[in-house]
């Protein structure tokens, strides 16, 4: 495994209590693999990613337990400086809103070139040449001229390409993309996803794709981890999960995708709201919204049951779920 998160716990201290954002998340990503982490906002998917990157705001955030193994080393045991050297070079991150995530007062050339200047000790001139190459690689037209421009002079799609170029600059082994297409038009979304998939194939990097959009995931991901209230509730190869979900929450998500052959029928929605992280329900956190909930769901926290060698489900009733 390239990256292995083991039993990670993250909490945020707020004025009115402690929000447990991540409650024992474990997942692994092999080299070259694409893992999609799926979940509603507040499910802990971004917080987990920030903990992996080491860019969590601490305080108020605090990692209270677990291990993050990357290339065999526990990142949580490294010094600040050691982690900084890994960030950007060995693992990189792509953010949701490229306009606010890029520095508005520096040219894109400066921001791309900075990676080579800081991590590789290149001269500014050489870094600029590299930056043009990167922009060509993510297919930004007229890269040589546009390198002197500022982020606001690019379109949304082009800006996200710059973000991607920046993440890929030093050919990291792992790229985490946090909702990379959410802020974009639908047509541009497809282009960006295609570009990501293509670059992943070319470079052999592993990709963690964080999203709340099941539609985005199907074509790109190898595996899916579904998160709910700071836990992984189901983890499976993408086709297995689509064919037969082993958790009622995954079932609900799949049912709420609009389908052409269901035209005219009412669209399914999961009833209720995502839980408040200050007061996570007892037992299985999903039980207040679950159509299959029984007494044991209210009292016992379900462990991640082994469904088969490659999938797991944190549901007491995974067997019934799997067989409809």
């Amino acid at each position: 495994m390239l990256l292995e998160v083991r039993d990670l716990h993250v909490e945020f201290r707020a004025r009115d209590g402690v929000a447990r954002a991540v409650n024992g998340v474990s997942y692994g990503v092999a080299a070259g693999e694409t893992l999609a982490v799926l979940g509603e906002s507040g499910s802990g998917k971004s917080v987990t990613a920030q903990a992996v990157m080491g860019i969590l705001d601490t305080p108020p955030g605090r990692i209270t337990g677990g291990e993050i193994l990357f290339q065999g080393r526990d990142l949580l045991k490294l010094t600040r400086e050691e982690r900084r050297r890994i960030r950007g070079a060995e693992m990189a991150m792509i953010f949701q809103d490229a306009l606010s995530s890029l520095n508005p007062v520096l040219t894109v050339g400066d921001q791309l070139g900075e990676m080579f200047v800081v991590h590789r000790g290149m001269s500014k001139r050489d870094a600029r040449v590299k930056a043009v190459e990167l922009m060509d690689r993510v297919r930004i037209p007229a890269a040589k001229e546009r390198i002197r421009q500022y982020p606001h002079q690019f379109s949304g799609g082009m800006r996200q390409r710059i973000m991607i170029a920046m993440a890929l600059a030093l050919e990291p082994a792992l790229v985490i993309a946090d909702e990379p297409t959410t802020a974009l038009d639908v047509t541009v979304q497809a282009q960006i996803m295609e570009l990501l998939a293509e670059l992943r194939r070319e470079t052999g990097m592993a990709l963690v794709l964080i999203t709340h959009d099941l539609g985005v995931v199907a074509d790109v991901a190898d595996r899916i981890a579904v998160m709910y209230a700071g836990r992984i509730v189901e983890s499976a190869p993408v086709h297995d999960l689509y064919r037969a979900p082993a958790h009622p929450y995954t079932q609900g998500l799949l049912d709420s995708i609009p389908r052409l052959d269901h035209k005219g029928r009412e669209l399914h929605a999961i009833r209720g709201l995502p839980p408040n992280l200050l007061t996570v329900p007892s037992g299985c956190a999903f039980h207040p919204r679950c159509p299959r909930a029984r007494d044991e769901c209210r009292t016992d926290v379900p462990p991640l049951h082994t469904v088969d060698a490659r999938r797991g489900s944190a549901c007491h009733l995974w067997r019934e779920c799997l067989h409809g």
């Binding site: 860019i55 960030r87 520096l106 800081v118």
Partner: peptide
Amino acid sequence: SSDHVRTALAKGLPRRRIVTRHLLRNSLI
């Protein structure tokens, strides 16, 4: 706490560079 400073952090820039290049200049406008 702005997004672009978080990006600078994710890029693995040293703290000094983040403060002078990505934080100060924008803040002094």
